[in-house]
């Protein structure tokens, strides 16, 4: 069966005519492009969600008030709205107090470079490598839960759905995974530090 996709302009028309599903389709079709665009400018998920939301609030208001007249160019139009909102965001956040250097006050006295030195970075990489090797030694069920939780940032609810066990079992496996890791680390007197 051929899957015919309605063009944006038709969906916009349907939405303006009162079909709310058309908006859901438009958002679904372009969400990753728009979200990715905003995230590429502001790498913060909460702010990106806020700007994505504000973008579509503007879209909804414009379409519902029949002020939209760029048929066929829906995505570039939405991108331009989100771009303007990103610019607004940076304008607002720039309004910060200005410090001037004087004899009594130097900006460098309150500023420091928190980035890791090369040595610290090498140590951190080594620690991570060692830890990965230790994780490989864990029983499969415990390793699975630990990797999902710590490396893939999944919630215990998501882990339980993915692995087909209860949340309590997933929690238990995580607990045993950590206990076993500690045991191995103590036994072999491995130093994980940075």
């Amino acid at each position: 069966m051929v899957n015919i996709q309605l063009p944006d302009a038709s969906l916009v028309k349907e939405y303006v005519a009162g079909n709310e599903d058309a908006l859901a389709k438009l958002i679904k079709r372009h969400e990753s492009k728009i979200y990715g665009f905003i995230y590429s400018k502001i790498p913060d998920r909460d702010i990106t969600n806020d700007i994505f939301q504000d973008t579509f609030i503007k879209v909804i208001k414009t379409l519902k008030s029949n002020s939209y007249n760029e048929e066929g160019k829906f995505l570039p139009w939405v991108m331009r709205i989100s771009h303007n909102l990103v610019v607004d965001h940076y304008r607002k956040s720039k309004k910060m107090p200005l410090f001037r250097e004087t004899e009594e006050f130097s900006i460098f006295s309150i500023m420091s470079d928190d980035s890791m030195t090369i040595e610290n970075r090498i140590i951190a990489d080594q620690v991570e490598l060692d830890l990965k090797k230790l994780i490989e030694e864990l029983p499969a069920d415990q390793r699975e839960v630990l990797v999902m939780r710590m490396y893939q940032d999944m919630s215990f609810k998501e882990i339980s759905e993915c692995t087909g066990v209860s949340i309590n079992t997933a929690l238990g496996r995580m607990r045993y995974a950590l206990m076993n890791l500690r045991k191995v680390i103590d036994k072999h007197q491995i130093i994980l530090t940075n």
């Binding site: 958002i27 990106t48 969600n49 994505f52 939301q53």
Partner: peptide, 10 residues
């Protein structure tokens, strides 16, 4: 975007 954002918009 998050599910909350989408459902809010709709």
């Amino acid at each position: 975007p998050s599910e909350e954002t989408l459902s809010f918009l709709l």
